[in-house]
Computed example of a mutant assay.
Amino acid sequence: MDLQAVVQLIGNVGFPIALCLILLQSILVKFNKQMDGLEKRLAQLDKTINMMVRTFETKVSKTILQEEKEKD
């Protein structure tokens, strides 16, 4: 937001309302950045959990096969 736009905003709606709008805009920008970061972290967490599940399933399958061989 440039200086001329801020002066025009203050002239149109008054200083307190203009200040609130500027603060709201900055808060929303920070919030959106945080949400983007959380989305990336959740995607990574999802990949990690899927990898752990596959590893667990593989180990369980190998254990079952070994037990079946021991019984025979």
Rank of each mutant, 00 (worst) to 15 (best):
N50R: 10
G37R: 08
T48E: 02
G37K: 05
I10H: 08
L21N: 14
V29I: 11
K33D: 03
L3I: 11
F15V: 10
V6Y: 13
Q4T: 14
S26M: 08
I22F: 09
Q25V: 07
N50I: 00
Q34R: 04
T48W: 01
I27K: 10
I10P: 09
Q34C: 01
C20T: 14
T58D: 06
S61D: 08
F15C: 05
T55W: 04
L24E: 15
L9Q: 11
I27L: 13
M52I: 01
I10G: 07
Q34K: 06
I49S: 02
F56L: 13
V6H: 07
L24M: 14
L21A: 15
T48N: 00
E39Y: 05
L42T: 03
Q34E: 10
M1Y: 03
V29L: 06
L65E: 05
L65I: 02
S61H: 10
T63C: 05
Q34Y: 01
I10A: 13
T58C: 10
M52K: 00
V29P: 02
K33Q: 01
M52E: 03
D46T: 02
L65P: 01
V13G: 07
K59G: 01
L24N: 15
K47A: 02
L23D: 13
L42S: 05
K71F: 12
L24S: 14
K69Y: 08
V53I: 12
P16C: 12
V13P: 09
P16Q: 14
I64S: 05
